[in-house]
Design a protein around this nucleic acid. Structure first.
Lengths: 261, 261
DNA sequence: CCTTTGGTTCCATTATGTGAAACTTAGTCT
DNA sequence: AGACTAAGTTTCACATAATGGAACCAAAGG
């Protein structure tokens, strides 16, 4: 949903419109947007024109609908490629997936939500935007809790205030207090579990990726199913995952200026 | 780079700045951008502030550099998911990759360039340049030529005028006329080859994905290496690829309104 | 033929963006 | 240290560009 407070300036509003189109999920007509938007007809119209002209949106002539444009996919590729974490973590993910034989996720925190930036699937070798770019809840995923546990107090509270605490399964930590207690445990243990808290049958073990300064760069997880593995078995891999995370962190740290020209 | 004519309005300029950051490839300092940009200091500064505040850019405090922000990755996921082609083509790509045992690409045309929107790796993975969101030249790739061959005259000429005709290999079609001649052949034959025109040792066979109206929706290709296969062997798969493309087209066509609410 | 719904254009008003210049650091040289 | 320079940030008078109510147009429906 939109309404993230104050959309500064014209660009802010335009991007807000972009988000509205995105959140609609499928191509959307002018009048549908008009209802959702706080902007008057003419204003919204102009934004859509501009964004379409800029290829951030694509207008389908036949159906009269707007959808997100290809320019975004281009930009996102660049964003992914020049992000500090994902590209350099690639070989490490490969290795970890190899060693564990399970699905591996790399995630970052974005505005209180978990943003998956890369993935290795046990079965399916290469997945792309179908998976990278996906967002998920922070309070009931391994990676989410791993990151929260090591973030500064203020950031954690801000993130907590953004959680829905929807009860996905009966294992879901559905109150701020339960979550805070869990985070304390994770902090000393060094790794987080997902005990079927988000999806029944899905379990995982996750660790944070920490810079030397202590700042949370992201998180790394190994996911399995109750049919195939157990929490105990996953915990046995915890050190392996931690080592991997440490190596990614080290690499990220040492990546100071690959020298220009 | 840049200079795509008229950056309409404030949003246009802001997006222009976004592209400048993207095209730089790695995190960029204010002064570097200042040099490249046509905007005066204060103006550029304000844009960067706004974009950063909107999380379209991320500012690295330690290094004082700007990079593309995570919001883009989110948006791109949505763009990919609601695009008409890529999500519904997924199972077909899986199948084609399975059947051929080779690398499969799905691409669309964007502003005279090839935009790869999905990919399946060969069982024996060949490390190549392409990934979703990546762009490539149209005049020397199989998918590019396949699409051009079936686009309306005016669109083709507009695209041709945007090509660099850089000679990547000695097989590269390096003039508009050579390309036009090749397109005519492709048009009757129904499929395009890449005869190591972009990368030495890399060959492919590509077909367009056409709507019933004749409009080009995208292209599909099977790629291999000269070490492992030949053009003749690839051509033997042409019908298979065409069938696959036809099925994707049919699905795209029938996808009229999955009915709302 | 008249009405409604959905989309596009006009244009006076005013908010917003603009950019030269002044200012504040942080860094370098002597 | 002190003086100089480069890099980044803020100010402010001004003009441009965004705003949105209202008028307009085009299909669909009665």
């Amino acid at each position: 949903m939109g309404s993230e407070g104050h959309a500064d300036g014209t660009v802010g509003k335009a991007l807000d419109v972009l988000d509205m189109v995105a959140s609609h999920g499928r191509p959307v007509r002018f009048s549908d947007l008009l209802e959702k938007s706080p902007y008057p007809k003419a204003t919204l119209y102009r934004f859509l024109q501009t964004l379409t002209h800029q290829r951030m949106l694509a207008f389908d002539d036949d159906r009269g609908t707007y959808a997100l444009g290809v320019r975004l996919v281009r930009l996102a590729h660049a964003a992914w490629a020049q992000s500090s974490l994902a590209p350099l973590a690639r070989p490490y993910l490969d290795e970890l997936a190899q060693e564990t034989g399970e699905t591996v996720h790399l995630a970052q925190m974005d505005l209180g939500q978990v943003l998956y930036v890369d993935k290795r699937n046990a079965a399916r070798p290469v997945e792309m935007f179908s998976q990278a770019g996906k967002v998920g809840p922070a309070y009931c995923t391994g990676v989410g809790k791993a990151m929260l546990a090591f973030m500064p107090e203020s950031a954690v509270e801000s993130a907590i205030s953004r959680q829905s605490f929807h009860r996905f399964t009966d294992q879901t930590l559905n109150t701020p207090d339960k979550l805070r207690a869990e985070l304390a445990v994770i902090r000393v243990r060094g790794h987080a579990f997902d005990r079927e808290e988000h999806e029944p049958g899905i379990i995982c073990c996750a660790v944070p990726i920490l810079a030397r300064s202590g700042r949370v760069l992201g998180a790394l997880s190994v996911t399995s199913t109750t049919a195939r593995s157990t929490l105990v078995a996953l915990e046995a891999q915890a050190d392996l995952i931690k080592t991997c995370a440490a190596r990614i962190a080290a690499e990220a740290e040492s990546w100071r200026f690959p020298e220009q020209e």
